[in-house]
Design a protein around this nucleic acid. Sequence first.
DNA 1: CCAACATATGGGGTGGCCCTCCGGTTGTCC
DNA 2: GGACAACCGGAGGGCCACCCCATATGTTGG
Lengths: 185, 185
Amino acid sequence: MANPKATPQRSDWQRNHERLVATAAALVAREGAQVSLEEIAREAGVGSATLHRHFASRQALLEEVFRDEVERLRLRARELAAGDPRTGLVTWLEELTISAVNTRGLPASLAAGAGAGPSAGDTCHAVMREATVTLTDRALAAAAVRPGVSPDDLLALVEAVAQATEGDPPTALRLLGLALDGIRP
Amino acid sequence: MANPKATPQRSDWQRNHERLVATAAALVAREGAQVSLEEIAREAGVGSATLHRHFASRQALLEEVFRDEVERLRLRARELAAGDPRTGLVTWLEELTISAVNTRGLPASLAAGAGAGPSAGDTCHAVMREATVTLTDRALAAAAVRPGVSPDDLLALVEAVAQATEGDPPTALRLLGLALDGIRP
DNA sequence: CCAACATATGGGGTGGCCCTCCGGTTGTCC
DNA sequence: GGACAACCGGAGGGCCACCCCATATGTTGG
């Protein structure tokens, strides 16, 4: 289902693909991650069969919808990896939380990827995980956080908080703060 | 929709009601909180209309399914309120987390009640909230936790963790531990 | 420029879900 | 044991995910 660059699809394929992702982005932002797939297809002006042919699952569609935002976060993590290890990690977790809470459907998409193990490397969750591992390891190495803290646990916590407080950034940050006070050395 | 003791329902009503709750409990335990309501009705041997007449919503049905477990937890909180304030609160949060993670569908049910405000006083969430408020206030009064900690935040965190780690108690407790280390004075 | 063909499309069908209406049934109370 | 309110469940409407296959359309070699 993914698009191997080796065999470029027909132009209408690409057109419909972009249409679908754009429409999905708009509808997910307005109605959440569980929008009707048929509505997306209808709004995009294609048959529902086409949507299913382009995306094997709702999750596959969401992965593409959030690709840009995830990329933005990935680059941000790169930046943060250049500064202070402690504040870098904390800022990363905060910004990730804010993004997830403010981006309708993202928490669901991240959580969905979490259970899948390390199978597919390009899921939203996998990218966020790699960033979190890097920043956590740096903080651990600098003794900036209590030893034994696991990046997977941190990410799981952020995802849990984001999913539970979708649309309410202040609460999300309060809950995250509660948790973060536990990582002092 | 609740059963005011003043006008006892007909015997078949009561029979079907118990059947439905029992069947729902079994199916929710096996398949999770989003089981098909029609399947519950089918398995219970009643028409789907009857199920909808007895329970205005899926949530209403779940509330009854979990009534016993919630009552057990409530009594447990009472016990804990007699001991050390610090360990009482911590133990409560841990046991609540364990129960929620091990009881399929409970996290969803708790979370669903969370957004509803203080309208209905007998929801699962409301009961757990009252217990958590009591124990947290005690701990705050004894300066056993950092001031400013909110029982609602603690409960929200437990519910978030429980929902995100449903069926995986070790992870749930690790995440809770991460958060709990933040409540030292 | 055009034919032939792989690639892609979408209407319509299947089966499932939630929820409601309404004709029929069953407890209950006098 | 009859009358009446309470209760039941099959059937149907609206919506959804997913799939099949006859049709259309980009693409490419002559």
